[in-house]
């Protein structure tokens, strides 16, 4: 098992170093990307400062506590830009061009290859800034960090990343049948924006949908509650069950979909 983890970690280092080499190949593009990134971050912080100057509550959450949710949302956005977007959006193209053949012929988990082959550095600042905002939010609520809340928070954040990844991968898998599923990515991104605010700030019906149908609550609100040290043990376990179930489903669904892969014609 340790050997396997080591092997797949080595792959990751190699995969991501070639991805960075690709980014470095186009110098002008790199400069433009840096400008875009700085602009985006500046814009987000401006919006945040506007929020912060209004000391209201949102769905029972103080603004400081809501900042934790916003911070986690920013981190997830960074994760999406760095890993999900560059990899999972390519699945559609692999299926369309038939180059998925090359992935399937390698003696490596095809799901792993398709999920982690590429890495874009442009999500890293969002990940870091998101974390800083969350920590700032926690400190502002005068909450004390303790070991248990830190461990629970880390577990919940990992759980939320797995949940987000699994939903994305399941949707990308449908391209085996439908080939063109670009729109699905866009719809998913729009829905995730709902994770920017605490789930209790939405009307009851939307809250139920975002908890039990599209598990938005498990992406930001639940990990935020863990960071604030007020997460119920049942929600903790429920979140773990949701992420494990979705991950398992994504693996089985991918293997099932491959039975229907016809490969693009020559």
């Amino acid at each position: 098992m340790i050997k396997l983890i080591k092997k797949y970690t080595n792959f990751l280092v190699l995969f991501w170093s070639t991805s960075l080499s690709i980014e470095l190949e186009y110098r002008l593009n790199l400069i433009v990307d840096i400008f875009t990134l700085v602009g985006n971050l500046f814009g987000s912080l401006l919006v945040l400062s506007l929020f912060y100057t209004n000391h209201h509550t949102l769905g029972g959450w103080s603004w400081s506590a809501a900042l934790v949710v916003l911070g986690l949302f920013t981190t997830l956005e960074g994760f999406t830009s760095s890993i999900l977007q560059p990899n999972l959006s390519k699945i559609v193209r692999y299926v369309q061009l038939g180059t998925l053949d090359y992935v399937l012929l390698k003696p490596i988990s095809s799901q792993y290859w398709l999920s982690f082959r590429y890495f874009s550095p442009w999500g890293i600042p969002s990940i870091i800034v998101g974390f800083l905002i969350s920590i700032y939010g926690v400190i502002s609520t005068s909450n004390q960090f303790n070991t248990i809340s830190i461990i629970c928070s880390i577990i919940m954040i990992i759980s939320s990343l797995i949940t987000l990844y699994s939903i994305w991968f399941i949707l990308a898998t449908t391209s085996i049948w439908f080939v063109k599923v670009w729109n699905v990515n866009e719809v998913l991104k729009s829905i995730l924006i709902a994770g920017r605010f605490p789930i209790s700030s939405y009307p009851n019906i939307v809250r139920t949908i975002f908890t039990f149908i599209i598990p938005i609550a498990f992406l930001t609100t639940i990990p935020a509650e863990a960071l604030l040290g007020r997460l119920d043990v049942y929600w903790f376990l429920f979140s773990l069950i949701i992420s494990a179930t979705l991950l398992f489903t994504s693996i089985r669904f991918w293997l099932y979909a491959l039975n229907f892969y016809t490969s693009a014609s020559s």
């Binding site: 190699l14 070639t18 003696p107 490596i108």
Partner: peptide
């Protein structure tokens, strides 16, 4: 009519990835 080489990088980079994947 299809290719696995990484379009933007020299072939040696694809070779390194493939070598690692095949152990």
């Amino acid at each position: 009519q299809k290719q696995q080489l990484i379009w933007d990088l020299p072939p040696i980079e694809t070779l390194k990835v493939n070598a690692a994947v095949y152990g």
